[in-house]
Each structure stands twice: as C-alpha cells, then as structure tokens.
Amino acid sequence: MPISRRLFATGTLAAALPLSACSGGSPSGPTGGASTGTAGFPVTVPTAFGDVTVPAAPRRVVALGWGDAETALALGVQPVGASDWLAFGGEGVGPWATGLYDTAPEVIGTLEPSYEAVAALRPDLVLDVKSSGDRDRHDTLSAIAPTIGIPTGGEDYLTTPQQQVTAIAAALGRSELGQELLQRNDDAFAAAAAAHPGWEGATFTAASRTTRGWGAYVEGSERVGFAERLGFVQNPAIAALPVGESGFSVPISAEQLEVVDADVVVVFPIGVPAGDVTADPVFRAVPAVAAGRSLVLDRDVASAYALSSVLSTRWALERVVPLLEGLGDLP
C-alpha cells in the first residue's frame, strides 16, 4: 500500500478527530438483539484471498477494518476487539453507535495491529473487510481465526459500504438483515433526493484541508458518492485533475484553489481547526464560498461522512441534508 494512502486513510483523519461477541444487544439497538443459534452454518464468504468458510455462528468477533466494528454492531453482534480508526476513544465508535455495546471491546491497533493481542482474545472470526489488502497481514490473521478480508476485485481501503455489509452479514449468518439495512439507507437517500429536485445535476466539490494543504475527493470516494446519491454531480474541473497516489483524492495548490468552485463546496478539515479554513482569504475568494454556498463540516459530521458505515452514513444524512438546505436555492 502506498505510504501516502496509509497516511491519508488513517493518520490524517485520526488527527482531524485528533467479552461478549454475538451476545444480545440492547432491545433498543438496530437489530433488537442477536441470536446465538447456528442455523445456516457453515457459510462461505468470497474474498480477494479466496473463499473463507465460517464453520459456526461466531461468538467472539474481532473487527479490524475501517468501519467493520460498526457494521457488526448494526447487525446485532458486539465485537470483543476492534480498531478505533478515527480515535474516538472509549468504545472506539462515534455517537451514532453509542450504547450498542454491553461491554466495551479491547481496542486493537489500526495499520499495525498487535497480532498477539488479537490472538489473546481467542476470536472465532476476524473482520478485516475494509482494510489494506496486505497479504502478509491477512495470512497472519488467518492463522489465528477465519478472516474475512477485502472483497474479490477490491482495493485497499476502497471497499464499498455495500461490499462491507454484504460480506460481514454473510460471515455472521445475517445476510437478510444486511440487505435490509442497506435498503433502509437507499430509501432514505432516495427520499432526500426526491424532496430536493433542485440538487439534481448541481455540481459538487468535496474538498479537504489538511496540515499539508488542500485537496479534493474524486469519483469512487464515498464523500463524492454520498453527494451523488442526493442528485449532485462531481465538479468536472476536479474530475479532470490527475488522481494522486491515494486513489481517491487529488492534491490542489493554494494557487489553483479556485478549481474547487462548484454549485456547492463542502470542506473536510483534517488535522486543522475549521476556523483556519473559514478564515483563509484564498478560500473565501472562491466564488461559491463568497456566495454562501459552502459548508465546513464539524468533527462529528465529518467523521460520520468519512467513515461511511451503515450506521454513520444514515446519521450523517440526517445532519448534512439540513445543512445543504440552509444554503438556499442553487444556481
């Protein structure tokens, strides 16, 4: 995995934000509790590393991939170990998943997890679905327990929410519930888009501002996909730029910042205060910004948007739509 992608996917986002697996969750949780039955097992899940067989309903799950733990929680399964990619602290999840653990998981490292710590948790399933796709990492984890890695044909950290939910739901024996969760989100996006016909075809830039400077997300990134599901289209000026090593973003110099101009500009501050963005005179001179058609997302909304788990996406949608509405009519 290129070093730049690793830094972008983990370190910079973290900087921006700075034992009961498969036990029943709270009845008020997203699934109303988890079954401990073994119906439907064994199951076989295709991955980029070959088919993986899960012999029985997992009872001790370790979730290491980006958003994998929240996906398991959405399906009613509480991991005993999990990686906290966005440095939330505590249980390692955002506010959209608060209260879904009965017992906090042991927090495991992200880019370089302690395999000893994983093994000590005696898992019967490891989730590493939205991850680096590193073969050595996968083989080491697979020696501990059946490991669900990136999907067939997948790329590092570019596992889509649909692929993530589908794979994890299959491994947990909850495929039907997984599809229900995805459909609920699809329906929510469709309803929001239908309620705002003025967004259809409007151009959209998802920009980033880090300690290293400016950038923008491109087609295939979930930040752009989120807006497209609401009817927006990617800023064609951004689409024309060469994609950086990350695979989902392009660097932008301060001198060319006007390229972010679109009907709507949304900025993700990463490792810098939002005030540094709004006070930047070059940013303020961008026509859309000067016209009041820009958003600089706060920590929680940016985190939810970036994580793109089945839980955080819906939470972000409920907050981003009113923010977009507040921009008024688009050109």
Score class of each variant (00 low, 15 high):
residue 287 P to K: 12
residue 289 V to P: 05
residue 272 V to Q: 00
residue 291 A to Q: 06
residue 291 A to W: 09
residue 310 V to W: 10
residue 320 V to E: 08
residue 311 L to G: 01
residue 301 V to R: 03
residue 318 E to S: 15
residue 288 A to P: 11
residue 274 A to Q: 13
residue 313 T to W: 10
residue 273 P to M: 12
residue 278 T to D: 05
residue 321 V to S: 10
residue 313 T to R: 14
residue 287 P to E: 15
residue 321 V to Q: 04
residue 313 T to A: 11
residue 301 V to Q: 02
residue 282 V to Q: 09
residue 314 R to H: 15
residue 295 L to N: 01
residue 299 R to E: 04
residue 316 A to E: 11
residue 293 R to Q: 00
residue 310 V to E: 00
residue 305 Y to S: 06
residue 302 A to D: 01
residue 283 F to S: 05
residue 296 V to N: 04
residue 294 S to I: 06
residue 322 P to C: 00
residue 274 A to E: 13
residue 315 W to C: 03
residue 321 V to M: 10
residue 282 V to N: 08
residue 283 F to C: 05
residue 314 R to I: 11
residue 276 D to S: 12
residue 290 A to P: 02
residue 319 R to N: 11
residue 283 F to T: 00
residue 323 L to T: 03
residue 296 V to K: 09
residue 281 P to F: 00
residue 287 P to G: 14
residue 300 D to F: 05
residue 279 A to I: 02
residue 316 A to C: 15
residue 319 R to M: 05
residue 280 D to Y: 03
residue 300 D to M: 00
residue 318 E to M: 12
residue 297 L to E: 04
residue 283 F to Q: 04
residue 279 A to V: 09
residue 293 R to G: 02
residue 290 A to H: 06
residue 279 A to T: 01
residue 293 R to D: 06
residue 279 A to S: 15
residue 292 G to F: 09
residue 312 S to G: 09
